[in-house]
Amino acid sequence: MDFALSDEQRMIADTAQAFFAEQATSARTRAAMADAGIDRALWTAFCQELGFAGVFVPEERGGVGLGMIEFACVAEAAGSQVAALPLLGGAMTIAALVESDTAYGDERLAALISGEAIAAAAADETITISGDGRLSGDAILVAHGAIADSLLLLCRGEAWLVPADAPGVRVTRRTTMDQTRPLAEVGFDNAQAVPLGAQAARAAMATGLLCLAAEALGGAQAARDRTVDFALERKQFGRPIGSFQAYKHRLADRTVEIEQARSAVYWAACAIDSGSAEAEIALPAAKSFCADAFFRTAADMIQLHGGIGFTWEHDAHLFFKRARSIQTLLGTGDFHREAIATRILDRAA
């Protein structure tokens, strides 16, 4: 038992933090926001220079051969800069393909790990699927759906992969509150999909929930740290505003939540890596808890900055909007807490 990052894990976390701090600057992220919501140069560097898109993929499948703890370190770092990257859909699709041990899977895996192809992913229960794998259904909202080459759909415990340009797939970009992860409306009209199976669906969902939880942890911590910096700099009534208890106690409360969020993310990562049944509690716990902690911290970031925090120029709204989108993606907090309630309250006595 040792619940601290190993030296190697610490190194990966530091590398990822340094990479995003240096490259995912506010200016570059804003350029991506004004465009398609992706910093393509950043994504290429992330995939090819760092090789981090395949951090949890076994070496024999072309990855780095590490696990979910290392992936969480990377996602946390991406979240701390609100980087405009298709990390969520990519990681979920890669996780699904790792479970599909075919030539079809290998080819697509290689393209996703290298960053040559981009994948988006969504979970939806309203799509109808025919016996031969044809999808039909009304428009669903898919993060980074408009720039993806392929779409992973999780539906009723199964995973399906569809090329974005397949006949019967309609993709419409929507103006999205969080411009770092814009949503597209995707509709299916008898579109042919490739089945990846139930195991792939479980892996993709676990990876997605962990990705969001870790991004939220990184985002919350960065939002808190930036607010602390401001609190020390900004003076009113002749003293730094961070010397007022009303201010300190709010930041302290967010800090308590951030520490819990950190425990949640790495508990969930360990649970997945060790194949523990605890993951079924750890993942909904981590996702719901971290998303809420991030939202409250980002909301406080605006409040505690005062007027400047409400401006477009300041980055506070990037955190605030990202936090809101993480709360919704892959199931709301209420949904995940109800899943936990079902497990602990409705089991046979």
């Binding site: 609190a231 208890q245 930041l251």
Partner: peptide, 11 residues
């Protein structure tokens, strides 16, 4: 909360 803010966050 004072301890967290002062010792942890450096306020």
């Amino acid at each position: 909360r004072n301890i967290i803010a002062e010792r942890g966050l450096g306020l």
